[in-house]
Design a protein around this nucleic acid. Structure first.
Lengths: 225, 225
DNA sequence: CGATAATATAATAATAATGTGATAAATCTA
DNA sequence: TAGATTTATCACATTATTATTATATTATCG
């Protein structure tokens, strides 16, 4: 979902490894290319590259040339890496529509900070509100629930109730407490209506239905095992 | 048309003059402020500031503080000027939503190149602003909507609403949220008016009408599948 | 093991939300 | 200002959801 793909282009394998590992640790998905042509191939293959990190110094097709080629068909954000702090280089970069310009050597922290800044600007960094429990995933932003990646249709109340359970994982919840939290305060109906909803949620969630445990004489508890 | 307004904030008059003159030469309209408070005043007075250039080192309210204040009410792009090349400073800046970070001394050419880059990114530099979703294309610049290349006539409000949906693709939107975003804050009418607009948009968009999904008990969501 | 109490289930009734078309109000335009 | 267009409101039809009820099942405890 939030797996953003970053293409790292550098002729030095060591460099790609360092950058790639650091990005992977930050939950970015990394694609590598060792030269300009390869970079273009990756771009053509995979239309979902969210950002490109491009080294200037490369044999044959250099960073500028690669950038020019990419710009012919894509507006993907590009970060340029260069050893030289030369001003003319920098100017050239911004003209080509480079988004950032980082001089080697740089700290990985700076790199990630700039990547985040760019992705935030381009709205790729959509901070989603997701609760993951076992095979179950509840996306409060898109209002979508998935079991094992498979989407499950829940009604409004079912969704609310499931969220409440997931947010109180491992806590025994009395029917009264559930009513007070998920239902409006002016609801004075039968608490047994919860049972009906629990039943429906359980059946809709399939395997994950077992996550909602019954606590006899007490209420319910949401838990993985 | 392309008269973009830039606010230059620096306590040194000499600095403001150099930067201001250079920007004026590039057909930018320049507003000056000699300290943080004055900068905020200018921002309040003139809602059409397109970019702020902010010096870190200023007496009383420094650049970071000024930035924080501006961020409380505006997302205007900010370029930070600082004498120190310190990494922690830079990290702090990115956290505050700084768009660029330039260390003094800098050449005016670099400054203008970065300003252009930012304005291009934020679509202030009159390039076309198009949102494409499935077979639907929304051109915010020309105010034209097409389905499968075929133009569709939408009223102003319909267009606004559709843009809002498209810009929040995949996000479940409550009627309240929609009202607050698409209607003026002083509108206190019936939320059901949204339904009517949704109905009209759906019917006008033909096949693409299905992109606007109903989330029962919640609101709407814009999505391709 | 059987009585009892609590929960699960399924069907139905009641409720609430949305879709729709007509109409009124507001806004724009000539 | 009249006419046209847009936007908001309303009333009713439609539909999905939620609550209720009755019954079956299951767990607990003497």
């Amino acid at each position: 979902m939030n797996e953003l793909k970053i293409l790292v282009v550098d002729d030095e394998a060591r460099m790609r490894k360092i950058v790639g590992d650091f990005l992977a640790a930050k939950d970015y998905s990394v694609v590598e290319a060792s030269n300009g042509e390869e970079a273009l191939d990756r771009m053509y293959e995979d239309k979902n590259i969210d950002l490109v990190i491009l080294d200037v110094m490369m044999p044959k097709m250099d960073g500028w040339e690669t950038c020019r080629e990419i710009r012919k068909f894509s507006k993907v954000p590009i970060i340029m890496l260069t050893a030289k702090g030369d001003e003319t280089d920098e100017l050239l970069g911004y003209d080509l529509g480079i988004d950032e310009y980082i001089t080697k050597p740089f700290s990985p922290k700076i790199l990630v900070a700039r990547i985040d800044a760019i992705l935030r600007r381009t709205n790729k960094l959509n901070e989603e509100d997701v609760i993951e429990v076992g095979k179950l995933s509840i996306n409060k932003t898109s209002h979508v629930v998935t079991v094992d990646g498979q989407e499950v249709e829940l009604s409004f109340k079912e969704f609310e109730l499931l969220c409440y359970f997931a947010e109180n994982k491992g806590i025994a919840l009395s029917r009264e407490k559930i009513l007070n939290s998920v239902w409006n305060y002016d609801y004075f109906g039968d608490a047994r209506t919860i049972d009906t909803h629990v039943k429906k949620i359980r059946s809709k969630l399939g395997d994950c239905g077992e996550y909602i445990k019954t606590i006899w004489g007490m209420g319910y508890k949401f838990e993985v095992d």
